[in-house]
Design a protein around this nucleic acid. Structure first.
Lengths: 145, 145
DNA sequence: TCGCCAGTGTCAATATCCTGACACTCGTTG
DNA sequence: CAACGAGTGTCAGGATATTGACACTGGCGA
């Protein structure tokens, strides 16, 4: 109950603060492109792994399948993604990016890179990889159950 | 567009992954106490700064005033907090913790400390403060606009 | 002094996300 | 071969968060 027990707890709020700020700044930059942060994350995951399924997409974004589904419907109506109408082997419909999405992502990646670069502007590159490694260790420790 | 530009972007998703996992683990531990993570965060901020206003509470939790208001109504109905009925100087109603909340927070802090301790179990204490300092620098860089 | 602006609390409407449930398909296991 | 669990997509309901708008009050500058 002393200061040593309280300090790790404040690491949790620090993570939340940083994530919320980063989300807000990304939203500011992505809004002119008519993209929300979840939409950008979805398109990016789709770019890294083409033909991925909707459920896998939901898992990576830490949302439910239903939410990812409505998000994909919006992207499909805008012509950014296309879902294969043929249900595939296990009733899954693969999703792929459209050319318009690739073009839009080029600009979006620039904006997001600008934000993240600004976030780490006060951290030397050597410390940057150290921060990444330490944080990754924290994430992995929470993965199991 | 090479690997150097992509690495900082992955730091952003790493922060989101860690925060989502931490949120999920905290929710698992707090659910038996009938507490959601936003409720716990609200009570904790109220414990650190008694008599705080609802709007300030919303700012610290990165939510709108309206959301914090309905959250406070739920806590008030459970007898965990009491809002002063006298509107104060600038129409604000100060919120204070009840004894039941202090008692509940004792157990909740134990659970949360357990989760955060487990998150940093693979990080030596010296590296832990380094992680905190580096992440705090990132957060501060995003604070300004 | 008067008007203006920032801050607060509140109401209404909207959007987003989640839980629960169902049907369908595959692989595995009895 | 039949039954079962796991994975996927979808529908409906409810909980939660946000945006927009309004009224009220204190401090500030014209």
């Amino acid at each position: 109950m002393d200061a040593l027990d309280r300090s790790p707890e404040s690491l949790g709020v620090l993570i939340k603060e940083t994530q919320s700020l980063l989300n807000q700044r990304m939203d500011d930059r992505l809004r002119p492109l008519a993209l929300s942060v979840p939409q950008y994350a979805c398109l990016t995951a789709l770019q890294d792994t083409p033909g991925i399924t909707s459920s896998e997409l939901a898992r990576r974004a830490f949302v439910s399948r239903q939410s990812m589904n409505v998000l994909l419907q919006g992207l499909e109506k805008r012509g950014l993604v296309t879902r294969s109408s043929d249900p595939g082997p296990r009733r899954e419909r693969s999703v792929v990016l459209n050319d318009a999405a690739e073009l839009l992502l080029e600009r979006a990646h620039e904006e997001v890179s600008s934000v993240v670069h600004r976030m780490t502007v006060e951290v030397e590159p050597v410390e940057r990889v150290r921060l990444y490694e330490l944080l990754a260790r924290c994430r992995d420790a929470l993965l199991i159950p």
